[in-house]
């Protein structure tokens, strides 16, 4: 069983739950940017947690199935069509050998997920099938899919019984053009002036066209750093500190303009002050904002972040339970 790539779309990559455990060596996790939608897709088609699927960005590919399969599409509103007919999302669907999956223009969100019963069966690299395109490793030959590729799919036992199962409407996220993202202020927020931290948390920021799997860059304000004497080992930009580790989701502001949120494919450390970190639960929402969408950052406590994470896990467990 394979998926033939007739047209690749803009950026279609193999992703799973991420390459966890080698961050200290400088290996970012990669993996599905919107992990909620990705996980729900796996539950729909009856895959194990962590099975690999396809992440489809901004513009859909054209894919043909070599054999009968059960699939699900979750994430962004990127209307799918099978052989030219619109088909539902957040639902397990039967496709037949030779069927062609295409997509209409993106309506909302940024990334759709294609899950296939059996999972995408590319070789693992450091325990994950996620593509890390910057170094050309993992996923399908270390790169985004291209025309003519045949993506191998694993076998699945009871996929027929999945057909028609749906994620309950109350669990399906809606992605408008405005997002509110919760952040924990720190680790080097002391470098910003108080007024600038207030500005950071009150400005409506605009996602720039640069935003990608490495980082999201925003426009809309200008932040100032506290005057200081340049410490030994730190660079000369007021935004520089002595090198340290960057949490995934951390926010840096080189030059005081254009905050950047580091994401799944980002560098793991460096010398820019990180003024806050987008909480893990909201990184999926972040990944579903697209260029020119609006974003506000809201400060929360660690307890609130942990509570949100607990609730998200409970919601995913409830979805999995409901799908049997």
């Amino acid at each position: 069983m394979a998926i033939k790539v007739l047209k690749p779309g803009l950026l279609t990559t193999v992703q799973d739950a991420g390459r966890i455990g080698d961050y200290a060596l400088g290996m970012p996790p990669s993996g599905a940017m919107d992990s909620f939608s990705y996980r729900a897709g796996n539950y729909l088609v009856g895959n194990e947690d962590g099975a690999a699927g396809l992440e489809i960005t901004y513009f859909g590919p054209e894919l043909a199935f070599t054999e009968d399969a059960v699939i699900a599409l979750t994430g962004a509103e990127l209307p799918p069509k099978i052989n030219g007919d619109e088909c539902p999302t957040w639902e397990a669907l039967r496709v037949r050998a030779g069927d062609v999956l295409t997509f209409d223009y993106l309506k909302n969100g940024a990334r759709a997920y294609l899950s296939v019963a059996g999972g995408v069966d590319v070789p693992e690299f450091l325990g994950s099938r996620s593509t890390y395109t910057l170094i050309g490793l993992g996923g399908f030959e270390g790169r985004a899919l291209a025309e003519g590729d045949e993506v191998p799919i694993g076998s699945s036992d009871d996929s027929a019984s999945r057909v028609g199962k749906k994620v309950d409407d109350k669990h399906i996220p809606r992605f408008g053009k405005e997002a509110e993202l919760r952040v924990i202020v720190g680790l080097a927020s002391y470098r910003l002036t108080e007024e600038s931290m207030e500005e950071f948390l009150s400005v409506e920021w605009t996602v720039t066209p640069d935003a990608d799997r490495i980082g999201y860059r925003y426009r809309g304000g200008e932040l100032r750093f506290v005057e200081r004497e340049q410490p030994a080992g730190a660079g000369s930009d007021p935004a520089n500190v002595v090198d340290f580790g960057y949490p995934v989701g951390s926010i840096q502001v080189p030059g005081g303009v254009e905050p950047i949120v580091l994401l799944n494919d980002a560098v793991t450390g460096g010398g820019y002050a990180t003024i806050g970190t987008v909480i893990s639960v909201d990184r999926g929402r972040l990944a579903q904002t697209k260029t020119n969408d609006k974003t506000k950052f809201v400060s929360v406590s660690l307890e609130e972040a942990l509570q949100a994470r607990k609730e998200r896990r409970e919601e995913l467990a409830a979805i999995r339970e409901s799908l049997g």
């Binding site: 803009l10 901004y58 513009f59 223009y105 260029t291 020119n292």
Partner: peptide, 9 residues
């Protein structure tokens, strides 16, 4: 003619 992608034209 439609834009197929979001971005800067």
């Amino acid at each position: 003619v439609k834009a197929h992608l979001p971005g800067t034209f």
